[in-house]
Design a protein around this nucleic acid. Structure first.
Lengths: 133, 133
DNA sequence: TCAATAGTTCGTAAGTAATCGAACTATACA
DNA sequence: TGTATAGTTCGATTACTTACGAACTATTGA
């Protein structure tokens, strides 16, 4: 039988929810940023934030499990692409445009513009409407 | 005991060395390009080509096995970042700047400029000279 | 014909990544 | 209180990546 996590962790003085770590601007690595943006779901998330502003995870209509989205959000955050702030039960994701522009001028813009050109649809991965032949 | 590969393969009419595949310009995917460029060695290779022009694999001074460099060159090629042409015993690697610029304007430039700013050294991964404190 | 050089392929090992569902925490609200 | 909502953590699975050395092909040039 398993003890409740809170009982175990709080009783030992360990924080359950890790402090969200955001790298300092100077520690943002080019390779990590490119890696974070090399996944279709993460590209979509970054692009949605750029188009419609900061927003919570649950506003992204992606065909994956909640835990998988958490993983992608962490990848973006740890690479320095997004900032996550807690608001009630939500995590609000925003792009670190200033930090990225300062460190890698023009990069984020050219990536997201390229993405938006190549994926003109609204939702995720919609193949631009099934085309009958 | 192992038969010679050539005996096996040619006798079955199979080409030993795969035809080098380069994706058509229109098939170059943003995520694949970003992924290909998200590795320090591949970034270095791309940057060296941009700085000094098309060159063979053996001109890259990288601390990895030959077979590993082959792997990285294939990753860049299959993503559409570089073009490989055979010249004697060598494979000459060049950047597909026109194709990339047409498909993702400004992307390659901002990536490689960002790389060259953040890695000012000449060789690979040289930590800009050990600094005593 | 032989040796040297350039690069590929293969097999393997270790590490990392994407994914899921279940169990959980945290907050808001009725 | 209790319930709903938002998101995290955990453990497992599966797949991919990076890396190497050994064996190989292909070409050049002595």
């Amino acid at each position: 039988m398993r003890e409740k996590l809170s009982t175990i962790l709080y009783s030992e003085g360990v924080l359950f929810m890790k402090q969200l770590h955001h790298p300092d601007r100077k520690d943002i690595q080019l390779a990590s940023v490119l890696y974070a943006l090399s996944d279709p779901i993460r590209l979509y998330v970054a692009s949605e934030i750029r188009k419609h502003g900061a927003q919570a995870c649950n506003s992204f209509k992606v065909p994956i499990a909640k835990s998988t989205l958490t993983h992608h959000a962490r990848t973006l955050r740890e690479a320095g692409v997004i900032h996550t702030r807690v608001q009630g039960t939500q995590r609000i994701l925003s792009l670190r445009t200033e930090d990225l522009d300062e460190r890698f001028p023009g990069l984020l813009d050219s990536v997201l513009q390229a993405y938006e050109r190549s994926e003109p649809g609204e939702g995720f991965g919609e193949p631009a409407e099934e085309q009958e032949e």
